[in-house]
Structure formats: structure tokens, C-alpha cells
Amino acid sequence: MRDAFSGYHPAVNFIFFLSVLGFGVVILHPAFLVAGIVGALSYFLLLHGGKGLKRIAMMLPLFLAVILLNPLVNRDGATILFQVFGIPYTLEALVYGAVLSGMFLTMILWFSCYSNLMTGDKFTSLFGNLIPSLSLLLVMIFRMVPSLIRKGKQITGARQSIGKEMSGTDEAMTVLGCLITWALEGSIVTADSMRSRGYGTSKRTSFMIYRMAKRDWGLLSAIFVLSAALIAVISAGHTTATFTPEWYLAPISPIGLLLYGFLSLIPTLLHLQEALVWHISRSRI
């Protein structure tokens, strides 16, 4: 799936996710929560399509459980609805549970988008210049894990066809031993290959496949400005929300809400903008 936001520099992607995840944890005000969910959900659906809906539906019981079980743990509420096993079940705690599960939903949605966008190579390219050896280590691990899984399958297949069924811990240990020997043998070759290409002869540099273009700087500064403004809104107390023992919600600040909504909707808006541009240029042809 082609997506406009993922075409930006990984650093921009990364900082965006850092910022929305940060605000998502800090802000509990229901109005802001809804704005955040709208932004995250719309982008999540753009990335995953119909399958995404199914995945959210599967998570619903979890959210429901958080809402319903919170009052059993959190007993500070003032308005007692009824008693369960002698525990007061309060309205405030129930609402707090709903807010918490809304926060979880936002987090899960953003993380899902994050893992879709930030592939291993994007992530390592961020730190390539800062910590070259660590980033190389990560790259090698990214490569090693799937290759070990493939080799493991090969070994179990080969053993199956000489009558060694995969059952019991003994057999699993044998396969593991075989896998380790094989991998070690391979790593000697890899080490030779690295040394013969000058690894360790001088200070490593990193090849940057991604370049910060003008639009990347533009978007990055937009994210920074929005975040700074939001921090100001938060410190002014416009997003304060407490639920127990009695709830208090700060009066809604339209500017703050607008800022947060806009920040959360950035990927979706970029996506729509691109779709629109293509639509127009195609209709011109």
C-alpha cells in the first residue's frame, strides 16, 4: 500500500509517532481523547483497509473488560452504583475505565501504524550516523532472525524425511543444536566477509538512503510547532481531567482541541491530499 506519510524521511515519521504517543499518554481529557482516536483510527484504516476493522473488532472484548473491571480495582469513586462482593462499584471508576480503554485504543492504533511504517532499515538508518556499530548490530539481527527460522524449518523437514518426527524435548534439543552449529559456521564466513571488506580498518560511516528534503523539514517544523503549542496548552491546565474521587474536567479549549486534532490528523490529511492531487492530474489527462 502506497502512503504519502511513509514517503517522508524516517526521522519525520519517528518524531511524529513519538509526539502523538507522548501526548496520548499524558492527555486524558475525553474531548482530546476523541480527537486523538479520530486521527489514529482514520490513518489506521487507510493503512490496513477492511482487515483493520476486523482487528479492532477482535480487540473490543479487551476494552470492555478494562471498562467493566476498573471499578473493582479502583474504589475511589463517590457515586456508588451497586455493591459487588462487598466492593462498592462506582460511576466515576467506570468512566475512568472508559477513558483508560480509549487511551489504550489510541496507543494500539498508533503502534500498529508505527510498525507498519518504521521498517527495520528505517529505524536503523536513524541511528546509523550516531552509533554506527549499534546500528550495524541491529541490521545483522534483523537479517539473522528470519534466516534462523528458515534454517530451522529446513532441518525439521530434513529430519522428518529420515523418520525423525518433531516430538518431545530431546528432538527439539537436537534440532536446536544442529541449528546453532550451522549458524556458527555461517557466522565465521560472515566475519571473514566483513573483514575482507575492510570492517574495522577505519571509522565507519553510514550510507544514508533517505535524505531530508525541503518538505521533510517543513513537516518536521510543523510537528514541532504544534507540539510546543500543545505543551503550552497542557501546562495552562486546559486538558486537566481527574475522575476519582469526584470528576473534574477543565473547560474545553477550542484552540487546544484544534491543535491536537490537526496533529493527529497529519498522516490522514497528507494521504487525502496526495489522493486528490492524483485525481486532479488524472482527470486533466
Binding site: 545483522m140 537479517r143 571488506r197 550510507f207 538512503i209
Partner: peptide
Amino acid sequence: IVTDKVWHELAFGLES
């Protein structure tokens, strides 16, 4: 092969 992407592998020696 040391790295996980084709472009990175091409650049590996030069990086070193």
C-alpha cells in the same frame, strides 16, 4: 551477506 537490504550491502565496504 552482512546486512538485510540490497542497497546497504552494496554500501557496506564503502561504509567500512
